[in-house]
């Protein structure tokens, strides 16, 4: 039996059942929490693709989240509030920003690369903070949730949950295909030994640039969804702390596995929410838990699947 296909299948099926379970509880709250978790799972997965497959740690991933969110906000303001249109705008915008900045960042390696992604993320953050036309730091409220191909299906929280789940599942399938493709294999080889790859006649830079663009595009979709979830956008979506959170989710889940990133995001957000309902001092509990996972190594995916 092919476990590689079965396990994610079960996982997504389980996630599809969440809205049914939520009907017995406080539905809008549970759906809001679960949808936010799915959106961050998508963002974490986009980071995982760069990190696990391409070996590139982006410390500016939240910038793409913000770009997607602001694309949605601007379109919504001028009457273009359709999810497909918003995603269709956010994807090229983020990809373009990723290509332009990564062309510079990728010259640097290791921690230098990490910090230069941070630099570009911060520049975008400060740009939106100072942009009074869009509310600056206070953010901007969207009048309503986006429409989907002209229908108002997404107005229902449950439908929106399924839209987020669909985006996550499609993203997963897409990235899974890419990782297994020739492109993905070259990328993985670059992570292990760029020199040898170059000797084989591949230019690492181009492959890494493409990986950055793909990752940014996917993360921007998460941003579009995040904007529509609460009909609200603010620069708080793109602080460096958010980029850090995404790295933590990814590493918590387990580096190298797309499912691990999903698991990490869900676990981190749900555990934070859960702990904070019982204590104001959630850091005293979440902090040591992260330390323990780190000490054990390989993240939660290591615990669940027993290795990469």
């Amino acid at each position: 039996m092919n476990w590689r296909a079965v396990v994610p299948g079960f996982g997504f099926a389980a996630l599809a059942l969440v809205p049914l379970a939520a009907r017995w509880g406080p539905e809008a709250y549970a759906l809001n929490l679960a949808t936010r978790a799915l959106i961050f799972a998508l963002a974490a997965m986009s980071l995982q693709f760069m990190l696990g497959c391409g070996g590139l740690v982006s410390f500016g991933q939240a910038a793409y989240l913000g770009l997607g969110a602001y694309a949605a906000a601007i379109l919504a303001r001028y009457g273009g509030g359709d999810l497909l249109l918003e995603a269709g705008t956010a994807i090229p915008a983020a990809a373009l920003f990723a290509v332009a900045t990564s062309a510079i960042s990728l010259r640097a390696k290791g921690v230098y690369y990490i910090m230069s992604t941070l630099a570009f993320g911060q520049m975008l953050y400060f740009f939106f903070v100072s942009l009074s036309a869009l509310g600056g730091d206070d953010g901007v409220t969207l009048d309503a949730r986006a429409r989907l191909a002209g229908t108002d299906w997404l107005a229902s929280d449950r439908a929106f949950y399924y839209a987020a789940l669909a985006a996550l599942a499609l993203g997963y399938l897409l990235l899974d295909r890419i990782v297994g493709s020739r492109f993905g294999r070259v990328l993985g080889a670059i992570r292990q030994n760029p020199l040898r790859v170059r000797a084989l006649g591949f230019e690492p830079f181009r492959y890494q640039l493409a990986a950055c663009a793909i990752s940014a595009a996917l993360c921007a979709v998460a941003g579009v969804l995040l904007a529509n979830l609460n009909s609200f956008v603010s620069p708080a979506f793109m602080t460096w702390q958010r980029s850090g959170d995404l790295i933590v989710m990814t590493v918590l889940g387990g580096v190298g596995s797309l499912g691990g990133a999903i698991l990490g995001a869900l676990a981190y957000l749900l555990a934070s929410e859960l702990v904070s309902t019982y204590t104001e001092h959630s850091g005293l509990w979440i902090g040591p838990a992260l330390v323990l996972v780190a000490l054990r190594g390989r993240g939660l995916a290591g615990l669940v699947w027993g290795g990469r």
Partner: peptide, 9 residues
Amino acid sequence: MKRCLSVLT
């Protein structure tokens, strides 16, 4: 991911 379901529940 199977465990994910039980964790969620």
